[in-house]
Amino acid sequence: MKAITLGGERIECDELEEGRNGVVLSYADRVVGYVPYEQLACVAETRTPVASSSIRSIGYDDEEKALEIEFQSGGIYRYAEVAHSTYEAFLSARSHGSYFHENVRGQYDYRRVR
């Protein structure tokens, strides 16, 4: 998931804890941020969990046309200029790992998010 502040900052997290004056954001049992309620625009689910031995979750950002993949190893990667139809096919693939290797890996520019 992702917490987005009113200033546009995006903080990637896998868990949030609501406090008295704001939210504490954590990733892999490590605190990665704190946002006071008055600065919090929203919290959005960014990826859908999938059943795969190599991939934990898959997400898509329509605005940026970016495919985001979280691997079981903990790495998160964003692939640029990916068609929404590719994301849909990826989600519905019998084998997410095979689909990744055949249709995504080496096909798109990417950057490591975490």
Rank of each mutant, 00 (worst) to 15 (best):
G75H: 01
S98R: 15
A51G: 00
G75Q: 04
M1P: 00
I4H: 04
V104H: 03
Y110R: 15
M1E: 06
I11M: 02
V104S: 05
S98L: 08
S85M: 13
V43D: 02
L25I: 04
E88I: 02
G19D: 05
C42A: 14
S85T: 15
Y27M: 13
A41Y: 12
Y87K: 08
S54A: 14
G97E: 06
S26L: 15
S92I: 02
H101M: 15
F90S: 07
Q72N: 11
V50Y: 09
E18G: 10
A41Q: 10
E17L: 14
D29E: 13
D14Y: 07
I76C: 13
S54P: 01
S54T: 06
S57Y: 00
T5A: 06
Y87Q: 10
R56W: 04
I11Y: 10
A28H: 12
T48I: 05
E81L: 07
V113P: 06
Y108W: 12
S85I: 15
V104F: 04
D62A: 08
V23Q: 09
H101I: 12
S52L: 07
I76M: 07
R30P: 05
S52P: 00
A80M: 08
L91D: 07
A51F: 05
H101Y: 14
L40A: 07
S52E: 04
I55N: 01
R20S: 12
R10N: 03
K2A: 01
Y108N: 11
L67T: 03
Y37C: 10
V32E: 01
E17H: 06
E18R: 09
Y60M: 04
I11W: 11
L25V: 06
A80L: 09
Y108T: 01
V32C: 11
E12T: 00
I58C: 11
Q39C: 08
N103K: 15
K65M: 12
T86I: 15
T46L: 08
F90E: 04
V104L: 10
R10K: 15
E9W: 00
L16A: 07
R105E: 13
E64W: 02
Y34L: 05
K2E: 14
E68S: 12
E70G: 10
I4K: 13
S54I: 13
A44V: 09
R111P: 00
V50H: 07
L6N: 08
S95L: 09
E38L: 10
T5Q: 05
R94W: 11
G74Q: 11
Q72L: 08
V24Q: 05
I58D: 07
Q72G: 06
D109I: 11
S53I: 00
A41F: 08
E15A: 13
C42G: 00
Y60P: 13
